[in-house]
């Protein structure tokens, strides 16, 4: 393989990994605070749809990004109400979010554009590299040619997430709430408030991830375009051991598996696609059964917190 090809494969892997990473970061926030967020897929669908809608209305893709974040928060708020305040089953609440998002977007599509399946192409997109200077770099300049703004955003947010969760007092609170909410409550940390903020943050990140798939990749919304990426993002989060940097590594690993498969096919090598499509899931299972180090979920992950009234 020539250097150009290696760069092309890496670039492709990074593009494929970005939506996974953004969503996985959302999962890290939510689950570190003790709320399992299986609704990432649904929030992504919402983000993908509303970013396209508002780009159509305003003609500006950045406003579309803001819309994706806002509607991501709306979807996440639904999950938060059910799983934090009403103490409902988080898995079921997340599944409901997924079903609701898929159905609502299909309905809005019909309502707004009077067609089903897909929207028209957006007048504005975010598919080109915003930092042109990087393309002039020797050797790796090519890498940046098709870097969308979302790639830079995702990388920055990974470190921001790490900083917030591990280097600030509030981050410590979040992790305490996710491990032992009762103890956290005893020392005066608002468990509900902390969980709310974290779930809403997961809405921000998964919404962004959806926008990355629509206006950041193909410039329109199509039903089914999220294609299970919310679940692969969850797998990336687990594979990354509920850690932002780990999630980044895991997303890139999943991305590179796909990119290598694509490249191998183009070269005419016969790598069964089904086999490589399994990699994310197999890797996650291997991590979960403790073959490569141990992945331990936050202790109170998935458990609603019942405040003692006494």
């Amino acid at each position: 393989m020539s250097g150009v090809t290696v760069i092309a494969v890496i670039a492709s892997a990074i593009r494929l990994a970005t939506p996974l990473l953004l969503s996985a970061l959302g999962g890290v926030f939510s689950e570190r605070s003790g709320v399992v967020n299986i609704g990432l897929e649904g929030i992504m669908i919402f983000g993908a749809f509303f970013s396209v809608l508002f780009t159509h209305i305003t003609g500006n893709a950045w406003i579309g990004v803001v819309a994706a974040i806002i509607f991501g928060i709306v979807m996440a708020a639904l999950l938060a109400v059910v799983s934090i305040n009403l103490k409902g089953n988080q898995i079921i609440a997340g599944t409901a979010v997924n079903l609701l998002a898929a159905a609502l977007t299909a309905f809005f599509l019909e309502l707004i554009w009077h067609r089903s399946g897909s929207t028209p192409i957006c007048p504005d997109m975010l598919t080109s590299n915003p930092i042109r200077v990087l393309e002039k770099l020797p050797v790796i300049g090519d890498l940046f040619k098709q870097f969308t703004p979302f790639i830079y955003i995702a990388i920055v947010l990974t470190f921001v997430t790490y900083y917030i969760l591990w280097k600030t007092p509030w981050g410590l609170h979040v992790r305490a709430v996710g491990e032992h909410p009762k103890a956290a409550d005893t020392v005066g940390i608002g468990v509900y408030k902390t969980r709310w903020i974290c779930v809403l943050l997961s809405g921000v990140l998964a919404g962004l991830s959806g926008a990355c798939l629509s206006i950041g990749t193909v410039g329109l919304f199509r039903e089914g375009m999220v294609a299970g990426k919310g679940f692969i993002a969850l797998a990336a989060m687990v594979f990354g051991k509920w850690h932002p940097i780990g999630a980044m590594g895991a997303s890139f690993f999943f991305g590179i598996c796909l990119a290598i498969q694509i490249q191998a096919q183009s070269f005419g090598l016969d790598v069964p696609g089904e086999f490589l499509a399994m990699v994310p899931y197999v890797a996650t299972i291997i991590v979960l059964i403790g073959v490569v180090g141990k992945a331990v979920a936050p202790k109170a992950d998935g458990q609603p917190y019942e405040k003692d009234e006494a």
Binding site: S12, R15, L16, T217, V218, R222, M225, A227, S266, F267
Partner: peptide, 16 residues
Amino acid sequence: SDSALGKENALAQNKL
């Protein structure tokens, strides 16, 4: 249905 994958496959072929 995965439009992003369609794009990556085409970009890889175009690169070659």
